[in-house]
Simulated assay, not measured.
Amino acid sequence: MKQGFELALAGLMALTALALGGWVGMAEFRSAPRVQGPALSRLADIDLDRQGVGFSPMRQRALLMDCEYGLRAENSLEARFVGAETMASIPALCTRIALTVAQRNSGNALAWTVAAAGMLAQEGPAEANLYLANSYNAAPRETWLARLRVGVVGGHEARIDGAAKAGYLADLAALAGDQADMWALAQRFVTDPAFRPYMTEALASLPEATQKTFLDGLSGLMTRGGM
């Protein structure tokens, strides 16, 4: 079964390589729930030494969601308004916020995910690997967290290993079973050659029916893109 899947996938990718030409695109996993309002401005106004992260789970979650957005918002319109200095300060600030929350509740997978994103932004892959593994161990079956983790790792696959890589592959496999997520994964599979080995490895562990659904989606994507 695995060999047949990989042969079919290789055939599709051979056609894609011929047809893609200059088509460039990237599917982006969005976090849920959505961040409301000027998240970057709120982060810019935080005095963590004076305010802390609070004891309310709702406040902590709000801070973490602002951070999750802030760590991937460098090209947003709001980033232009808050300025380069604020944007440069967000990785360290949000890592500190996330680790403070995680130290109070080691089972907070969102906090570990944000901490991992912060460390990747600060060129700290060893710490990021640990925090990603902690996040997966705390919540291995939460789909919305799987989306966040896949988004965090995106573009950094070469930096993850061990338990973090195992968790990443498990997240990819889980998301491949969801129609909307499968479409986003297929888009990225087409446009990002570095991503393909990870997605292929994740899919190879899944039932044949799921593999076929992904291949059909990939074929449909190529057809709709005029390829």
Rank of each mutant, 00 (worst) to 15 (best):
2 K>R: 12
3 Q>W: 10
4 G>Y: 12
5 F>H: 10
10 A>N: 11
12 L>I: 13
14 A>I: 07
16 T>R: 11
18 L>Y: 04
24 V>H: 00
27 A>H: 03
28 E>M: 10
28 E>W: 05
34 R>V: 06
36 Q>P: 03
44 A>H: 06
44 A>C: 01
45 D>G: 03
46 I>C: 07
50 R>G: 00
51 Q>C: 01
66 D>S: 07
67 C>Q: 04
76 S>Q: 03
76 S>V: 03
78 E>V: 01
78 E>D: 04
80 R>G: 13
81 F>C: 02
83 G>W: 06
83 G>R: 08
83 G>F: 07
83 G>S: 08
93 L>W: 07
93 L>P: 02
96 R>D: 13
97 I>P: 04
101 V>L: 05
101 V>R: 07
108 N>V: 03
114 V>K: 04
115 A>H: 06
118 G>L: 09
121 A>K: 15
122 Q>K: 11
122 Q>S: 12
122 Q>G: 09
123 E>N: 15
134 N>A: 04
135 S>I: 09
137 N>T: 14
139 A>L: 10
141 R>C: 06
143 T>A: 14
145 L>G: 03
154 G>C: 00
155 G>A: 01
156 H>A: 07
157 E>H: 04
158 A>I: 02
159 R>W: 08
162 G>W: 01
165 K>P: 00
166 A>N: 08
171 D>Y: 12
174 A>R: 14
178 D>R: 14
182 M>K: 13
182 M>S: 15
183 W>F: 12
187 Q>M: 09
189 F>N: 01
190 V>T: 01
192 D>R: 09
192 D>Q: 13
194 A>F: 01
199 M>Q: 08
200 T>W: 12
207 P>I: 10
207 P>W: 09
208 E>H: 14
210 T>I: 14
210 T>Q: 15
211 Q>I: 05
216 D>K: 15
221 L>F: 14
227 M>P: 02
